[in-house]
Write a protein that binds this DNA or RNA. Structure first.
Lengths: 329, 329
DNA sequence: TTGTATGCGTTATCAT
DNA sequence: ATGATAACGCATACAA
């Protein structure tokens, strides 16, 4: 590959002049003639600036780190695509890594976008080399540099939807959430909605298998056995909900006529399930893009933080919910 | 952040010594005493080497470019996770980008991994700065630096499975594949299997909507109307297959007792559909990892190419296929 | 209007 | 055993 110096030689000028021409740093007007000569020389040599050298000289890599908890989640693809597009549009590259701590210290990136669950974020990597970090995560409290959405509200919204349809005995499918310690956001939202309506809650936990779908299936079988009066369930995510659908079909209940199900996250699964699943849409992609915009803003302005933002979780209605057939007591 | 020079000052030695100690470049044995002094100074200052400067000096960035056609595909997450893990294990970072041409010329990466369809690969970015490029793609011909799997074989395998079950009138759901020009690999495989068994082929094309699921639904409705004797279908991908399932249910046919369906790619959708979908497993993640290993090998050995590899496409049986109920003519 | 010199943080080749 | 010194490729303050 050719270098700046080689271009300079060929054009018969100094390297610095080439740099200025190619970067449009025309503090003092440069005659068209030389500009053309330089451009031509660069073109002939197929000159491509070395991004590393430039980064070393300027202190900006134009690269952003992206950390994601479990990439396997269908969310990731959706979000990654949106984020990559936005980053490219702003002139940045994306470095995905499962180990941000080392990345931030290495000088490879101008900042980082961390996507994860609140518990994973308890010990957030400190902003080494004072490169800003922004967060994307569910959460209840708006935090600086964070774009969040509220799963308490989301879960409550789901349950309220079922209640509004007339359901009085509603189960919460929480899978491998721990029953000990402070309850998870979706559990809180579930309980709040149930209690506000003066209903009894039925919560199901337990890791029957490492597979979420299967887990939802097992838990629902148990639910149907132990709570025959139950007419609807809210699942912590679409995986569990799909499993529930399976178990319901197994036991010959029709969804939604005999039983209603609402999922969470509005993934592709919700659109593929039979019947198609009503699910809560969590704004992964939107939040990722927002956070990225803010990150770039921080980097380019030199500011340290931006006020956090909360995005709404919205209900996406499909075909898995209906009023209960049995009249309520 | 602290630099090599600062560490050197603090330890009372020269920068070059620090570099050698920290990189274990002990050409000539260095006394433990100084080694410790240097290590201590580095630790106290929280020294982290600047990856950019190092890359500029050594000519190795320890970063790999990853290009992916449509990231939205559930495959991508699966593959990305596997590839990232393997890259990290080998000491490399991953730069995802939709524009490899510019990346390769910029000196940011030591090589690139391009995931895509053969048609996208017709004009592959030339290996600028002679950084090696490897490819992951479906394909019929083994190409240098490529890890492929054969969709002709895969599609044929799917159809042969249906034939073995006793189906005699089998449709191919190809969605928005073009009917003009040379037929796609999966079309070829479909035709080969059908013709080998002396059966008639029924091929369905057409873009009814931008949504693949919906498209599968539309095409299947049309199929059921025009080809009432058909008892099974092969879909180009799981999206179309899921759509087919929907249309079949709509028309009150039971799967698999009345009608068999086989999908392609073995995505998460196949496990979520009702009934669970028999699908062909394409080795995305495996191929990605293989290609990455080869890429690293090329980079570190300085060789230009490795002989291509082909990975098998295998049938994953689930619950959407059974022998036809009506006896064949 | 253009060139010179210096620095970015590291590694590597020489000397010593 | 260790320390100067020169790259790596580019940007920029300062001279001319």
């Amino acid at each position: 590959m050719s270098t700046l110096t080689e271009v300079a030689k060929r054009a018969g000028v100094s390297p610095s002049l080439v740099s200025r021409v190619l970067n449009d740093k025309l503090a003092m007007p440069i005659p068209q003639a030389t500009i053309l000569r330089v451009r031509e020389a660069a073109a002939e040599l197929g000159y491509r600036p070395n991004a590393l050298a430039r980064a070393l000289a300027t202190g900006r890599t134009h690269t952003l780190g992206l950390h994601y908890g479990n990439m396997t989640d269908p969310h990731f693809a959706r979000m990654l695509e949106a984020v990559e597009a936005k980053a490219a549009a702003k002139g940045y590259h994306l470095l995905v890594s499962s180990d941000m701590k080392s990345l931030l210290g290495s000088g490879r990136v101008d900042g980082a976008l961390i996507v994860g669950l609140p518990e994973e974020l308890e010990q957030p990597p400190r902003a080494a080399r004072n490169r800003p970090i922004v967060y994307v995560s569910p959460g209840q409290a708006i935090i600086p540099n964070g774009v969040i959405w509220n799963d308490v509200e989301g879960a409550a919204c789901a349950v309220e939807h079922l209640i509004a349809l007339g359901h009085r005995r509603i189960a919460g499918l929480f899978g491998d959430y721990s029953e000990e310690g402070p309850p998870q956001a979706k559990v809180l939202g579930f309980r709040r909605a149930v209690q506000n309506a003066n209903l009894q809650s039925v919560e199901l936990y337990g890791r029957y298998s490492s597979d979420q779908i299967e887990n939802g299936c097992h838990l629902t079988r148990e639910l149907l056995r132990s709570q025959p009066g139950c007419t609807a369930l809210f699942a912590r995510n679409d995986y569990l909900a799909v499993g529930a659908l399976e178990a319901l079909q197994e036991s010959a209940r029709r969804v939604p006529s005999d039983f209603s199900v609402v999922g969470y996250n509005d993934t592709i699964l919700a659109r593929c399930a039979t019947p198609r699943l009503t699910s809560l849409h969590t704004p992964f992609a939107e939040a990722g893009v927002r956070a990225l915009e803010n990150l770039v803003q921080l980097i380019e302005s030199g500011e340290a933080a931006f006020p956090g933002t909360a995005l709404p979780v919205t209900l996406t209605e499909r075909d898995s919910c209906a009023p209960p057939t049995t009249t309520t007591s």
